[in-house]
Structure formats: structure tokens, C-alpha cells
Amino acid sequence: MIVAIVACEIGFWVLLVAGLAARYLLKARTLSTVLLLSVPLVDVALLAFSVIDLRSGGEASLGHALAAVYLGVSVAFGHRMLGWADQRFAHRFAGGPPPTPLPAKGTHERASHERRMWLRHLMAYGIAGLILVLFAALVGDAERTMSLWATFRLWTLVVVIDGIVAFSYRARRPISSANER
């Protein structure tokens, strides 16, 4: 299962880079569109492989839990990652504008950005949870799905910590002097 996840991650980046190279280096818009539209098929392939493995009696393992995490993150952050890569590729190879930097720490924009990213993380967590429920239903035996839920409990802790960090960002207020009071 881990091999399938690694293969899908490699497939994701290969299709993404090939699609961007076709767009900006080869100026092949149609090929670029086909390649970039194929990127989500990597997720479909991973989901199909996981379902087939579980339906054929495979033991629900850490690999299946990681596949659910991968799929959740891919759905929640995939479009954003495509935009991130597109912006950098266009700048590097096609004279596009420089990538937009993260807002400066201590600004209202940075605090808003961190909270939006946490909401995406929460969305990924929810999607992965639904996929884990699907996997558990396919297996149909609580004993054989324990590793799925152990991984999910760990991710719950990570999401909570990420939320605390995201909501700890605040815009700095200027320090007022004693004369201004």
C-alpha cells in the first residue's frame, strides 16, 4: 500500500510538471490541459487500488490510513498546489510575475491566511475521515480496522495543534506611549 501511495505522489508531480512544461515550454495548450486534467485521476487510482485491496480481503493497515490522508489532503489542497506550481513555473520559464509571497508575520492578512490554511486542513481531515469510514465499512470488522483509527487519532492531535497555532497569529498593534493615554 505504501508503494501505491509513493507511486501516486510521483504520478501527481510528473503529470503536474509535464502539464506545466507543455503549457509554458512547448506552448501546447491542448496537451497541457489534458495532462493537468489528468492529475485528479491519480487520486481516483489510489482510491480504487485501496478499495480493491480491502475488498479482496486485505488487512486494513497504516498504508490504507495514509492513503485516506493523502486523498483528503489532495482534495483540500490540490487546487491550491496546482496554482502554486503554475505561478512559479510561469515566473521561471515564461516571464510571468514573481510568485506572491506569504503575508508578513504580524499582519492581519497573515493571521487570516493561517486560519484559512487551517480550515483547509480541517477539510482534509474531514474528507479523510469519510474515506476511513468507507474503508472500515468495506472491511466490516472492527478488529481489522484498528490501525486506521489509530492514525486518525494521531491526526486529530495534529489538527488541534495546527488550529491552536493558526489562531495564535495576531496582527501586531503599535505600542502606545504613556503620553498617548
Results as ranks from 00 to 15, higher is better:
L82T: 12
A67W: 02
L82M: 15
Y70G: 00
L82V: 15
V69M: 05
L66I: 08
W84C: 13
G63M: 04
H64T: 05
S61V: 07
A65T: 07
A85I: 14
A60S: 05
A67D: 03
R88M: 09
L82E: 13
W84P: 09
L66K: 01
G83P: 08
V75I: 15
L82Y: 14
R88W: 10
A76N: 07
G83E: 14
L62K: 03
G78W: 10
S74P: 00
A85Q: 11
L71F: 00
M81W: 13
A65K: 07
S61H: 02
Y70S: 00
V73Y: 04
A60K: 03
R88Q: 09
L62T: 08
F77R: 10
L66Q: 03
G63F: 01
L71H: 00
A67H: 02
Y70Q: 00
S61E: 05
L66N: 03
G63N: 02
L62C: 02
Y70M: 01
V69L: 09
A60T: 04
L71Q: 01
A67V: 04
A65Q: 04
G83T: 12
Y70P: 00
G63Q: 02
G63R: 07
A68M: 06
Q87C: 15
V75G: 01
L71P: 01
W84I: 13
S61I: 04
S74F: 04
F89N: 06
